[in-house]
């Protein structure tokens, strides 16, 4: 499928460009398809291509030395990834993986530089995109006191389960996050950590508290 003009007009990088400018930019853009699980960029490797998601979703993440994955963001249709690495000329600070079948539009680093010189509006748009990216990262850093979050999740589980008698509404991870003032992703990591400690067991859509005493210790309550 050819690179679609209407799609290019809709993405923030090319906002405000005229039809002729879009046509001029389009010759540098190429399409790429990927299947679920395909790694589109690798952490610590040079990034030569900037991607825009046309269809599907891409996960941007970092992996720690002990194999823990931290999702930074989910890139949905109309959004871009690899921006910082391509524009800085350095290596990718994160990895990107297709979450299902995805269709991407892409532009090589050298071609992006030509577009930026030929179309100053694109450079202004890039500044806006990167500014929003910085705001999102600052918000994520605010949530990154990981140990504190695990303790708060443990306390929340104990309080919500109560004495185990009576029915309570089920909670989504987003609702749990809102209850303790953190990001949904941190709740997911905390639940995995608590399960690894043996204080809870995850069975499909049930969180089963298996060690109340241990969970109280994690929560820092008597």
């Amino acid at each position: 499928m050819a690179v679609q003009v209407e799609f290019l007009k809709s993405i923030p990088y090319f906002s405000g460009l005229s039809d002729s400018e879009i046509d001029s930019v389009r010759r540098y853009i190429f399409e790429k398809k990927a299947e679920r699980g395909e790694i589109l960029s690798f952490e610590d490797e040079p990034a030569g291509v900037l991607y825009f998601v046309v269809a599907g979703a891409v996960k941007v993440f970092k992996t720690s030395a002990d194999g823990k994955e931290q999702i930074f963001s989910i890139i949905r249709p109309g959004e871009s990834f690899n921006d910082v690495a391509v524009l800085s000329g350095g290596v990718s600070l994160v990895s990107a993986e297709a979450m299902g079948a995805v269709t991407l539009n892409a532009i090589k680093k050298n071609d992006l530089e030509v577009v930026l010189r030929e179309h100053p509006q694109v450079a202004l748009n890039v500044i806006q995109v990167l500014s929003r990216r910085v705001q999102e990262l600052v918000s994520l850093v605010e949530d990154f006191s990981f140990r504190h979050v695990t303790g708060r999740v443990a306390k929340m589980l104990l309080e919500y389960a109560g004495d185990g008698v009576g029915e309570r509404p089920r909670l989504t991870q987003q609702e749990m996050a809102a209850m303790i003032g953190t990001a949904r992703e941190m709740v997911g990591r905390s639940l995995k950590s608590l399960e690894a400690e043996g204080t809870i067991r995850m069975e499909r859509n049930r969180i089963i508290i298996t060690d109340q005493k241990g969970l109280r210790e994690m929560a820092g309550v008597a």
Partner: peptide
């Protein structure tokens, strides 16, 4: 996680396992 509109949710039941801990 991926839904842009919050249209699909996967809620969890939180329970205490009997006789454990």
């Amino acid at each position: 996680l991926v839904c842009p509109y919050g249209a699909i949710t996967c809620p969890f039941e939180i329970i205490i396992e009997n006789g454990q801990g």
